[in-house]
Amino acid sequence: MAIGPRGPRSREERMTPATDTNTGAGPKVRLKTSAMIASIAAEGQRTKPAPFGNALAELAKDRPEIVGMTADLGKYTDLHVFAKACPDRYYQMGMAEQLLMGAAAGMAHEGFVPFATTYAVFASRRAYDFIHQTIAEENLNVKLACALPGLTSGYGPSHQAAEDLALFRAMPNMTVIDPCDALDIEQAVPAIASHQGPVYMRLLRGHVPLVLDEYDYRFELGKAKLLRDGADVLVISSGILTMRALEVARTLEADRIGVAVLHVPTIKPLDTETILREASRSGRMVVVAENHTVIGGLGEATAGVLLRSGVTPKFRQIGLPDEFLLAGALPTLHDRYGISAEAMARSIKGWL
């Protein structure tokens, strides 16, 4: 661990904000960290603090086999809440994701249910082989909760997990979850703890938006949920793009465009029955929206389901491009890459 003027610094505190490459001509500007890891909540939007950490601490009261493990990122994955509630069941493994995954596998072998946290890039790239060989192949009861999924960091490719869903979808035995908001996370935690086998869950941290409580929503592992109906467009979405899709649906009502939103929090196993039922309704364009590269994620998984079943609506994808993404302020990047609510609305209107 590096030593700063006030003592040891965590890995995130040591990171230097990257240069904003989206400023165009003129001198390059050094961005404040807050602009690069800003909350995904819109101004004035309702939020809940640390839904993952609080849900896990609450669950652990009656589940003594649950342990929390991290790779020097307890504070930045909200696992510090669990650490405070259950200090004797909290393991700080240092900056070594491979060690974290191997130790989590060992804990699972001994009957514990480890929740291992790190950043999504470190789990999906740095520790992939350890997860594959020591956790997934053994079908062990390890739960991976990984922060900064997709484009939720402006630090550039080293911290933008644009391909994590594709990687973990391809791993046998692995269940893959992409929650939308604080409610989704709170309800997913006990569900994945009860599931036997490894789980990879994307993690939203800090003050997380709260939107799904307005839609009588309840998380069910392996189930997609139709949040609202509409006659013109069906948006099939996961993660924070479900939140954006709901914003788009309200915006396009003013143009008399009816947008249905089907939230798919479980990427694997995919709820093919619900997807086929909704996509088979005639007259609707199907748009898959995800905070992930268009390669190998929910979009291509959905396209495969539709084609194999002979269902062929007009089909479009909203997602991150197949390229290394720029560093910069998140609102700028989201609009540049087409995943802001405004950019999504423009795309959908242009396709109709």
Rank of each mutant, 00 (worst) to 15 (best):
I236R: 00
D229K: 14
V264Q: 01
L246W: 10
T242H: 07
I257Q: 10
A231T: 01
L246N: 01
L241T: 14
L262N: 07
T251C: 02
T266V: 13
D255C: 05
I257S: 02
V248P: 12
L234S: 06
E253W: 00
A254N: 11
I267W: 01
A249L: 09
L246T: 00
M243K: 11
T266I: 06
E247D: 12
P265M: 01
L234V: 08
T242W: 07
L262H: 05
D229V: 12
A254Q: 15
T251L: 12
T266N: 14
P269H: 06
A231I: 00
V235Q: 00
K268Q: 08
D232V: 07
G258T: 02
M243S: 05
L252E: 05
L234P: 08
L246Q: 01
G239N: 14
G230P: 04
H263S: 12
G239K: 15
I267F: 07
V261L: 02
G258L: 02
R244S: 06
A245D: 01
S238A: 06
E273C: 11
I267G: 02
D232H: 06
A249I: 14
I236M: 01
V259C: 09
L241P: 00
I267D: 03
L252I: 04
L234Q: 04
T266P: 15
I267P: 06
T242N: 07
I240K: 04
V248K: 06
L270A: 09
T266W: 08
D229A: 14
L246F: 10
V233S: 02
R244I: 13
E247H: 05
R244E: 08
A260L: 07
L234G: 11
V233H: 13
P265Q: 03
R228Y: 04
L241D: 02
G258I: 00
T266S: 15
S237F: 04
T272I: 13
V233C: 11
L241C: 00
R228H: 05
V259M: 07
E247K: 11
E273Y: 14
H263A: 12
S238M: 05
R256M: 15
I267A: 00
A231Y: 03
E247Q: 08
G239C: 14
A245W: 10
T272K: 15
S238V: 03
D232N: 04
L246G: 01
L252R: 00
G230L: 12
V261W: 02
V235S: 01
R256I: 11
K268T: 12
D271S: 10
G230H: 12
L252D: 08
P269Q: 09
I240R: 02
V248Y: 09
R256V: 14
P269W: 09
G230F: 07
V233A: 08
V259I: 15
M243L: 07
E253M: 05
V233Q: 09
V233P: 03
L270E: 10
I267R: 01
R250N: 15
G239R: 13
V235I: 14
D271N: 11
E253D: 11
S238Y: 06
E247Y: 03
L262S: 07
G258F: 00
M243G: 05
A245E: 07
D229E: 15
S237P: 00
R244F: 08
K268P: 09
T266A: 14
R244G: 02
